[in-house]
Design a protein around this nucleic acid. Structure first.
Lengths: 127, 127
DNA sequence: TTGACAATTGAACAATTATTGAACTATAAT
DNA sequence: ATTATAGTTCAATAATTGTTCAATTGTCAA
């Protein structure tokens, strides 16, 4: 995950178009309404975090119940290591939170928007 | 974009966990509530499409007004080629639609969920 | 037809990323 | 203390992906 970086070869601020606008008025009217670069990076980084099958499964599972890493690993048929890596990504994105309990670390959802967004996305996916 | 494939090294069906469940009851109670693999792939592919700064910009722009490729290229300061590549991704994901008009191809939003999802995502991003 | 412009496409490259396996930390039980 | 278990982290690897550049297609105008 890049969190605040650019994708392969992307450099949003300094790119150059290779053509003139057909409808320059329109373009210049819209330009000020475009989001700030910061907002853009945050938005696409958020979706990048959601854009992974393992992490979607983790969110889905945690929507059912909080769970420790090992249980999540069994549920998803993955190694603890792989699960831990992805949980870290989700935690950094503030989508899940962790709480140490004895030998275990219990993970739980940390954002009430997630369920909402997942539902909307499902609506789209199901035509 | 992989649309229906797996990410680097991912093989959702045949992975192996490296541990036993702490709370097997919980795991087995949740398992049947997990989404089907198909749904999962579709969901994460949808988010993958949204998880790119260029594509977010394109969606945002098209939310303001339909536009041809050249205008989008000028607005985003990118080459027509790069824009066209990303529009194709969005079109395949059924998020935008294209309509030929003379020498130009006019792109427009094709999904009423997108605005909604973008808004929810913004809420999250802005804490 | 010829030339110019708009857009798409394919190959290639650089960068990013998810998993693996091993090493490491921390906690609990004996 | 020692052992075992839970989880994290590091390095390496294989795969994916966004942009660039060049070539191509399609459309309009002269």
């Amino acid at each position: 995950m890049c969190y605040f970086g650019q994708k392969a070869g992307v450099n949003m601020e300094n790119k150059k178009s290779d053509c003139e606008a057909i409808n320059l008025d329109l373009v210049e009217r819209i330009r000020p309404n475009m989001p700030e670069m910061n907002t853009l990076y945050e938005l696409s980084d958020f979706f990048k975090v959601m854009g992974d099958g393992t992490r979607i499964q983790l969110l889905w599972a945690l929507e059912e119940s909080e769970m420790c890493v090992g249980d999540l690993a069994v549920l998803l048929n993955m190694t603890k290591s792989a699960v831990s890596h992805q949980l870290k990504v989700l935690r950094t994105a503030k989508l899940v939170k962790a709480q140490k309990k004895g030998k275990n670390v219990i993970y739980a959802l940390d954002d009430y928007h997630v369920k909402n967004i997942l539902e909307k996305a499902l609506e789209h996916v199901r035509e």
